[in-house]
Amino acid sequence: MREIKASQITKAVMELVRRANFILRNDVRFALGSAYRLEKNKRAKTILKAILDNAVYAKQNSLAICQDTGMPVVFTEVGQDVKISGDLKAAINKGIKDGYRKYSLRSSIVGDPLLRGIPKFSPCIIHTDIVRGNRIKLIVLPKGFGCENKSRLMMFKPTATIKEVKKFIIEAVKSAGADACPPYVVGVGIGGSADYASILGKKALLEKLSTKHYTPYAKLESDLLKEINNLNIGPMGLGGKVTALAVKIQKYPTHIAGLPVSVNISCHALRSAQIIL
C-alpha cells in the first residue's frame, strides 16, 4: 500500500484551483486562436481577440479568466492500492475553500438550494472512481453556471434515430443561443442511465479538444460541429463562423428500454486542471 496524506491532496487541489482559474487550457486557447484566424466577420473577430487578450491578461495578472469561478467539480481516480491517511472528501473541500480564498476567487455556492443563504466557496461536487494502481488523479473543473443552466437531458425511446438525437443536441445549443458565452464546447453523454449520461456529458468536457475518436462517434462529432457552426450564433451570439469549438461525445452501454442523452455545454472559458499524485 502506498500512503498519501490528506494534506497532500489539499495542497494539490489548491494548486489546481489556481491553474484552472488563471491559466486557460492550451487546447482551448489553440481552438480559439484558429477560430480567430478563420473568422471574417469584423465584430466576431474583435470579440475573439478580446477573449484571447483576456486569457493573456488573466495569466499575467493572476486574475480569474472569468468572474464566475464556477461550482467546482472535482473528478478523482483513486488507485485501489493507495491508503489515504485522513478524510479524502474533507481534504478536497479544504483545498477548494483555501484555494478559492487564497487566489481571491468568487464565493458562488449557497448552502441551501431553496433557502439560498450567504454565498461560500464550498462545498464542491466530487465524483470518485476506484481504479487499479497506487496513484491518485485529481481534476478540478470550475464550471460556470451561465452555461451549466443550459444543460439538457432527454430519455429517448430505444428506437429513436441518430437523426433525432442530433436534432436534440443542436436544439440545446440553439436554445443556449447568446446567453452562455459562445463559442461553446459541447459535451455529450450518450447511454448509461439518467445520472450517468449527465456525468459522461460533463466528463466529455475534460477531453483534449483536438483528440479524435476512431469510432463511428467521430463522424457524429464532426457532423454535429458542422451543423452547429452553421447556426451563425457566433461569439457573444452576434453572428459568426464559430458557434462551437468542439463537440465531444462519451458513451456507455445502456438498457434495452432506453437511450439517455445528456448535453452539457461549456462557455468558451472552459477551465480544468489535473494532477497525478
Binding site: 478580446a50 487578450d53 483576456n54 480569474a64 472569468c66 450567504i118 457573444m236 462557455c267 472559458a269
Partner: peptide, 27 residues
C-alpha cells in the same frame, strides 16, 4: 452588452469600486 467571459480584461477599465448595499449577498 460587453465582452462576455472576459472578466479579467474588463477589470482594466474599473478605476474605483465601492460596495454600497446588500453586503450580506457577498458577490
Amino acid at each position: 452588452v460587453t465582452y462576455a467571459g472576459c472578466g479579467a480584461l474588463l477589470s482594466k477599465y474599473i478605476k474605483h469600486a465601492e460596495t454600497i448595499a446588500y453586503r450580506d449577498l457577498g458577490p
